[in-house]
Simulated scan of single mutants.
Amino acid sequence: MRANKIALEESFVEIDGFKIFTKLYEKKQEKPTVVMDSGYGDYSKAWDNIIYEVMKFANVFVYDRAGLGRSEKSPNSRTSLEMVKELKAVLTKLKLNPPYILVGHSFGGVNVRLFATQFPNDIAGVVLVDSTPVDYKERFLPTMSKEFQEAYNKQFIYEGTYEEFMASLSQLKKEQRYLDNIPMIVLSAGKKAHYSKESQELWNEMQKEILDISGKSELVIAENSAHYIQNDEPFVVIDAIKRMIEY
Rank of each mutant, 00 (worst) to 15 (best):
A3D: 15
N4V: 14
N4W: 13
K5L: 12
K5V: 12
A7G: 12
L8M: 14
L8N: 11
S11H: 13
I20P: 00
K23W: 10
L24V: 13
E26D: 14
K27Q: 14
K28C: 05
E30D: 15
E30V: 10
T33R: 02
V35E: 02
M36A: 02
S38W: 00
S38R: 00
Y40M: 05
D42V: 05
Y43N: 07
S44Y: 06
S44N: 10
D48N: 14
I50W: 06
A58Q: 06
A66K: 01
G67V: 04
R70C: 03
R70D: 10
S71K: 03
S74H: 05
S74E: 08
S77V: 11
L81M: 12
L81H: 06
E82D: 14
M83K: 03
M83T: 12
M83G: 05
M83C: 10
K85G: 09
E86M: 04
E86Y: 01
A89D: 15
V90K: 01
V90P: 00
T92P: 02
T92G: 08
K93P: 00
L96Q: 11
P99F: 07
G104P: 02
G104A: 10
F107N: 01
F107L: 03
F107G: 00
V110T: 06
V110F: 00
V110E: 01
N111V: 13
N111C: 10
V112Q: 03
R113Y: 03
R113H: 06
F115N: 00
P120M: 08
D122P: 02
A124T: 13
A124D: 15
V126Y: 02
D130W: 02
D130M: 02
V134D: 01
E138W: 11
S145R: 08
S145Y: 11
E150D: 13
Y152A: 01
N153C: 08
T161C: 09
T161D: 13
E164P: 04
E164W: 09
M166C: 09
S168N: 07
L169D: 00
Q171Y: 11
L179P: 01
D180K: 14
D180A: 11
N181M: 14
P183V: 13
P183I: 13
M184E: 07
I185S: 05
L187D: 01
G190M: 06
A193H: 14
K197T: 12
E198G: 11
E198T: 15
W203R: 02
W203T: 03
K208L: 04
K208N: 08
D212T: 15
S217V: 07
L219S: 06
A222I: 04
S225Y: 09
H227N: 09
H227I: 08
N231Q: 11
D232I: 08
P234K: 05
F235S: 07
V237L: 12
D239S: 10
A240K: 03
I241R: 00
I241L: 04
K242G: 04
K242P: 02
Y247N: 11
